[in-house]
Amino acid sequence: MITWRRVTGNDFPLLRHWLAQPHVARWWNHDTSVKGVERDFGPVARGEEPAEDLLVLLDGRPLGLVQRSRFADYPAYRDELAAVTEVADETMTLDYLIGDAEQVGRGHGPRMIRALVRATWRDHPYAPAVLIPVPLANRASWRALEKAGLCRVAEGELEPDSPAAGRAHYVYRATRPTRPRAADAARPGSG
């Protein structure tokens, strides 16, 4: 079962370990020193920054990290992506990793993404969509998004998180599901 909770300072040693793994470091260009992880993750963990860093658990054991944020809270990032595709302020984005290399390629990525997208509709009731840019070079990541049900909606040049990623990106979208109106649901043949 996939569950999650907010990252706390007690999780920083685990994040340092994960960020140093070659399969993560290739795409996540982070300083893995104690000070670097504190600088990058401390403000969110302390509630000083509006994003959410979520430690994802598989059957109660740490599996990965998902960062979830609203584009409205990061206008420079929103504006950069808006050059490639439409971005409403309340739209959310996710970034994710699986920390343990032995857990990669087992279908956990799509399950994790699918679960967090579904939770986004509940947790952020005004979010019309989730947009996720991913480097073209990171085939495993964009394939995980496709398996999770997201649709590729754009392609363009964006500033990469890691120099190894290159500027070419795909952008994937999940749109908030609409609920049928009560009258439509009661009509024969509507369900």
Results as ranks from 00 to 15, higher is better:
1 M>A: 15
1 M>W: 01
1 M>V: 06
2 I>Q: 14
3 T>G: 02
4 W>N: 13
4 W>Q: 13
7 V>Q: 04
8 T>K: 09
10 N>G: 11
11 D>A: 09
12 F>H: 14
12 F>N: 09
12 F>T: 09
13 P>L: 11
13 P>T: 09
15 L>N: 09
15 L>T: 12
16 R>S: 15
16 R>Q: 15
17 H>P: 00
18 W>C: 06
20 A>C: 04
22 P>W: 12
22 P>G: 08
22 P>E: 04
22 P>S: 13
23 H>K: 06
23 H>E: 11
25 A>R: 15
26 R>M: 01
26 R>F: 06
27 W>Q: 05
28 W>Q: 13
28 W>M: 14
30 H>K: 15
30 H>S: 14
30 H>G: 00
31 D>L: 03
31 D>R: 13
31 D>N: 07
32 T>G: 13
33 S>G: 13
33 S>D: 03
34 V>S: 14
34 V>R: 15
35 K>G: 03
36 G>F: 12
36 G>Q: 14
38 E>Q: 14
38 E>D: 09
40 D>E: 10
42 G>S: 05
42 G>A: 05
42 G>N: 04
42 G>D: 04
43 P>E: 09
43 P>Q: 09
43 P>N: 11
44 V>E: 10
44 V>W: 02
44 V>D: 02
45 A>M: 11
45 A>D: 05
46 R>W: 00
47 G>N: 04
48 E>M: 07
49 E>Y: 00
50 P>G: 11
50 P>K: 06
50 P>H: 02
50 P>Y: 03
50 P>Q: 06
51 A>D: 10
51 A>C: 03
52 E>F: 06
52 E>P: 00
53 D>S: 09
53 D>W: 07
53 D>K: 05
54 L>Q: 07
55 L>H: 08
55 L>E: 02
56 V>E: 10
56 V>I: 14
56 V>K: 10
57 L>D: 11
58 L>G: 08
58 L>V: 10
60 G>L: 06
60 G>T: 07
60 G>N: 07
61 R>A: 15
61 R>G: 06
65 L>T: 03
65 L>E: 07
66 V>S: 07
66 V>C: 11
67 Q>W: 04
67 Q>N: 08
68 R>T: 07
68 R>V: 07
68 R>H: 05
72 A>R: 11
72 A>W: 00
72 A>N: 02
73 D>K: 05
73 D>P: 02
73 D>T: 01
73 D>F: 05
74 Y>K: 08
75 P>W: 01
75 P>K: 06
75 P>F: 01
75 P>A: 05
76 A>G: 10
76 A>D: 15
77 Y>K: 06
80 E>D: 11
81 L>M: 06
81 L>D: 07
82 A>L: 01
83 A>T: 12
87 V>G: 05
87 V>T: 04
88 A>N: 01
88 A>Y: 07
90 E>W: 02
90 E>K: 09
91 T>I: 03
92 M>T: 12
92 M>V: 15
93 T>N: 12
95 D>G: 11
95 D>E: 11
97 L>M: 15
97 L>I: 00
98 I>R: 08
99 G>C: 04
99 G>D: 04
100 D>T: 03
101 A>N: 04
101 A>T: 00
101 A>E: 14
104 V>Y: 02
104 V>T: 15
105 G>W: 02
105 G>I: 03
105 G>P: 00
105 G>A: 02
106 R>D: 00
106 R>E: 09
106 R>M: 09
107 G>K: 14
107 G>D: 04
109 G>E: 09
109 G>I: 01
109 G>H: 03
110 P>R: 12
